[in-house]
């Protein structure tokens, strides 16, 4: 059983209904709508994300999770509405400014900068570098001291992520899982107050998944809030303090993991009940994957096991496990 996130206690009394207000939210979203032609990709009335806690964003493929990420981080502009991050208005703010406010994202398709070394990747993350100004750049003495501080900090993070032996390797030579680790470590170089992780575990082998999870769990204890998209329900149940469920662009449920897992609407969204066409939504391995990956299960709190079990029993019995593991690898 892990130590609960600092922000988790405040969530105990929050009613698990969509759009509920939270004590001291870090990100507040209001009336955000984004359409692509006729398709409403995101249509969120109101959402508040807790500070100092890990929030999972789940939902079937095509629910709008990544679009929501893009809208919040300035990589896409909403047709209307926006959010407020830690007091900063987010409407039409470009991505680099959002990052400088302290909200840093990673990408579903990892973006390791392949022809830079691991160390260069890390150092790039540091903010407000004097040497990044064109007129100061040619004169090394003006930025060397700061560069050394940055390098020391990067070295520390690399040790924590057990990547220090690769510091001078080109990032392009790393494996997929190592790239995910590097991307997360690089995001921490920015010294963010909120980390947005878009499927950090996708395509990573189980051993590395554990290591990645441990790092994510540490983030709230280091003063960061986390929002992450994940398809693996065991992971979600294991590490989240709060779960937000999206389907067809809208928030259909939110609450503590064990409550969300029992929510009828969530189960409907995943298996497509009431739409008469199950192929519209790809089922996700709710309880099914728990059997396959015992390592995660051991870490999971008992309530979440129960919740995951209930979800699984709500799903179709016929071979959902097979279809689910395919879906897990697909983009959302």
């Amino acid at each position: 059983m892990r130590e609960p996130s600092p922000g988790a206690a405040a969530l105990a009394d929050v009613e698990p209904v969509p759009g509920v207000a939270k004590p001291d939210p870090i990100l507040i979203v209001d009336h955000v709508r984004r359409t692509f032609g006729g398709l409403v990709a995101v249509d969120v009335e109101h959402l508040e994300l807790p500070r100092g806690a890990i929030t999972s964003l789940i939902g079937p493929n095509g629910a709008g999770k990544t679009t929501f990420f893009n809208l919040m981080t300035g990589f896409d502009v909403a047709d209307e509405g926006a959010g407020t991050f830690d007091g900063h208005e987010l409407r039409k703010i470009p991505a680099h400014k959002v990052s400088n406010y302290g909200m840093v994202r990673t990408f579903q398709l990892t973006k390791a900068l392949t022809r830079l070394t691991v160390m260069e990747n890390m150092k790039l993350g540091a903010r407000e570098q004097r040497g990044e100004r064109l007129l100061l750049a040619p004169w090394a003495p003006l930025w060397q001291e700061q560069e050394q501080e940055i390098e020391a900090r990067a070295e520390e993070l690399l040790v924590r992520f057990k990547m220090d032996h690769m510091r001078d390797e080109m990032a392009g030579t790393l494996s997929g899982g190592q790239r995910k680790l590097l991307e997360m470590a690089r995001a921490l170089m920015v010294e963010p107050i909120m980390v947005m992780l878009d499927e950090p575990m996708a395509g990573v082998n189980p051993a590395l998944t554990q290591s990645l999870l441990e790092h994510v769990k540490d983030l709230p204890h280091m003063g960061m809030s986390v929002l992450f998209v994940e398809h693996d329900m065991d992971v979600v149940m294991d590490i989240s303090d709060w779960v937000v469920v999206m389907a067809e662009g809208r928030i259909i449920a939110e609450g503590p993991p064990e409550v969300v897992a029992r929510n009828e609407e969530v189960i409907d969204a995943y298996i497509g009940k009431g739409h008469g066409d199950e192929s519209r939504f790809t089922p996700v391995p709710l309880g099914a994957a728990a059997v396959a990956d015992t390592a995660v299960r051991e870490e999971a709190p008992p309530e979440s096991d129960e919740g995951a079990g209930e979800l699984a029993s709500g799903g179709p019995d016929d071979g959902s496990g097979g279809a689910a593991s395919d879906a897990q690898e697909g983009p959302s």
């Binding site: 300035g74 392949t114 040497g131 995001a187 170089m189």
Partner: peptide, 22 residues
């Protein structure tokens, strides 16, 4: 210099550079 490092990161993937606040 760090300035050159930013240029190279843009060459590799400009969205990654943006996400890091450049």
């Amino acid at each position: 210099s760090p300035w050159g490092r930013v240029l190279k990161s843009i060459r590799e993937d400009e969205d990654a550079a943006r996400a890091l606040g450049k």
